[in-house]
């Protein structure tokens, strides 16, 4: 059964999954030209971090400190999304676009 140990879910599975979500989020942040798309990538990265916090809390430290920190991360994510989307709307009203590569009035 040794070759099937990989199918018994443990901490490493969670860390691997979180790494995958983090990489997908990084890719989204780096490639999107639409500012809302960039924010979707940020949410993926924050979720990957949350998975790690809760998995470590469950498998390594015990207790609930990881849960509380994940809760704080969720609240910060909510504040970030509200502020960032307000900025996006404000930019759209002023520039009529939210293409992040075209908002360059301060260049030169």
């Amino acid at each position: 059964m040794d070759q099937l140990a990989i199918l018994q879910v443990g901490l490493k599975h969670f860390l691997f999954l979180a790494a995958l979500l983090f990489a997908l989020g990084t890719y989204t942040v780096l490639t999107r030209r639409n500012a809302v798309g960039v924010l979707i990538g940020v949410e993926l990265v924050l979720n990957a971090a949350n998975i790690n916090l809760v998995a470590f809390s469950h498998y390594v430290t015990g207790g609930l400190a990881g849960h509380v920190f994940a809760l704080f991360v969720i609240v910060i994510a909510a504040a970030e999304a509200a502020i960032a989307l307000a900025i996006v709307l404000s930019i759209f009203q002023n520039f009529k676009t939210i293409d992040a590569t075209k908002i360059d009035v301060m260049r030169n």
């Binding site: 990489a23 997908l24 990084t26 890719y27 780096l30 490639t31 999107r32 030209r33 639409n34 798309g37 293409d99 590569t101």
Partner: peptide
């Protein structure tokens, strides 16, 4: 939702 510069981004991620 256009994308830009996917090769370096794919390398980084």
């Amino acid at each position: 939702n256009p994308i830009v510069g996917y090769k370096p981004a794919a390398a980084v991620s």
